[in-house]
Write a protein that binds this DNA or RNA. Sequence first.
DNA 1: TATAGTGGTTGCGTTCTGCAACTACTATAT
DNA 2: ATATAGTAGTTGCAGAACGCAACCACTATA
Lengths: 176, 176
Amino acid sequence: MEPRSGCPINAAVEVLGDRWSLLVLRDVIFGDRRYFRALLTGSIEGIASNILADRLVRLVEAGILTRGTAARGQRARYSLTETGIQTLPIIFALGNWGLDWRPGSDELRSRQQLMRDEGPAFIEELMDELRVRHLDAPPKPHDGPGPFERLDAAYAAAGDAASERPVTIGGVRRAP
Amino acid sequence: MEPRSGCPINAAVEVLGDRWSLLVLRDVIFGDRRYFRALLTGSIEGIASNILADRLVRLVEAGILTRGTAARGQRARYSLTETGIQTLPIIFALGNWGLDWRPGSDELRSRQQLMRDEGPAFIEELMDELRVRHLDAPPKPHDGPGPFERLDAAYAAAGDAASERPVTIGGVRRAP
DNA sequence: TATAGTGGTTGCGTTCTGCAACTACTATAT
DNA sequence: ATATAGTAGTTGCAGAACGCAACCACTATA
């Protein structure tokens, strides 16, 4: 994989510029999916197992993920490196653009909306929390829920609202 | 091109997640390359003509570029839309990551370095200038050189420095 | 009338992607 | 001991995307 040029934008595109790598990272970061099966079955876009296997190898080779030592057939845990944690601003920028200029579902858009509303400090907070989860950094004390808890709460609220609306009759919630 | 999911990150990846689209946009934005031949011959990564033609069609379809009306064999000028201008933060984030975590050449890295050093306001300044160039927005008055002139100067200085160093003898510049 | 320049298109071989089935191993329950 | 479920992948194969070189249709200039 010799680089096509010395441009830093190209250097990033060569590693991350395909239809799956950034989605795998998204699921590792926001979904806290650390195992092959979790990434495979949890992917809303439906990644194929051979593609996932290939991307995990590439991301490890690029120094974005590390793979815990595990023999074949054993649970192998993937962790973000600092290099991987630093892809969050890229994912954030992509999500903001998608939110503004592409269609999408309300549930999934709510997470991006919250991140943007909270401002740049929130991204730093998320990255700090990723260092705790993936790099064994000492936890920082928050008052109140952590950044990922707030994201999950926003997502759950939007999901409930979206699934409630069509099955609510006379203000009474019905079974889905 | 039905979306694989309603996630805004995925929505952006579906449009921009390949090995060429963002590099074409980089050349339109930073190199001010507006014509097919300029993009083709100016590409440092060496894009093929059929790939470039395909990407221009896709970027126009996605509402990122517009194509000036021109018959076959006539110069057709491509312009950024507001949607296209708003990809700058994505390109900026990718470049920052590439600068930090991937190797590259000093000349090409200097532009990214300057953008980062100047801070977020500089990105806004660049986007404003793109609106002038591509959307016929009224020019904003600056004192001193515009943002792209500053970038080009940084690039030229780094390029000179890189090519000067080995051919400078006794402090006197020699012909390359 | 020729030459250079415009924006592409066409063949053709290579690489990447995606689906389904399968492999090899471990852990747990019977 | 044997069956079952769960782990992380691998393999085969077909179709799509990519990349190189050559070519096309048109315009402007000499």
